[in-house]
């Protein structure tokens, strides 16, 4: 390779390396701000600040959703299968909200350990499946193991 080209190549490679290293360190330092939400474990360990607006995310615990009969108020728990957090919310939930679904709630951590949400967003996973397949899977699972409940939520 021509000497001047080699020099340019090396300069460029060094610049790119330094920049990516710098950016990597910045992103690493800002990790907590880039994370969209706190997990129930982080909240349980006290990493989430109280009385500031934050987001909490996790899986809605099965059987934990309690709706108020007269208002739109609803309480439920979210879990990351290590810890769980109780959430209260007043308003319309997204269509995909259901037990066993991942959600992200925006709101404040109250001093009594309950998360008061002002907005609830539903997460969905990267798996897509036709409804017939889900039904068949559920059926197969019930046949092999009739006592356990299905892992696939309808």
């Amino acid at each position: 390779m021509h000497a001047i080209r080699k020099k340019r190549l090396i300069t460029l490679a060094v610049i790119l390396f330094i920049l990516s290293a710098a950016l990597g360190l910045v992103l690493y330092a800002l990790q907590q701000n880039i994370n969209l939400f706190y997990s129930p474990t982080q909240i349980a360990l006290g990493e989430a600040p109280e009385n500031t607006t934050i987001r909490a995310g996790g899986m809605v615990v099965k059987g934990s959703v309690k709706r108020d009969a007269n208002t739109l108020a609803v309480t439920f728990a979210v879990t990351d299968f290590k810890h769980s957090v109780q959430i209260q919310y007043q308003g319309i939930l997204p269509d995909l909200f259901r037990e066993g679904q991942g959600i992200v709630a925006q709101g404040k951590m109250l001093s009594n350990g309950v998360f008061s949400a002002s907005q609830v967003l539903a997460k969905h996973d990267e798996k897509y499946m036709p409804p017939e397949v889900t039904e068949a899977l559920e059926k197969a699972q019930q046949q092999t193991n009739p006592t356990s409940s299905s892992t696939l939520e309808r």
């Binding site: 997204p94 995909l96 907005q119 967003l121």
Partner: peptide, 12 residues
Amino acid sequence: KPTWGTWWVWDA
């Protein structure tokens, strides 16, 4: 909008 419940969120 229909799945998450929002048009935009400042996630990574």
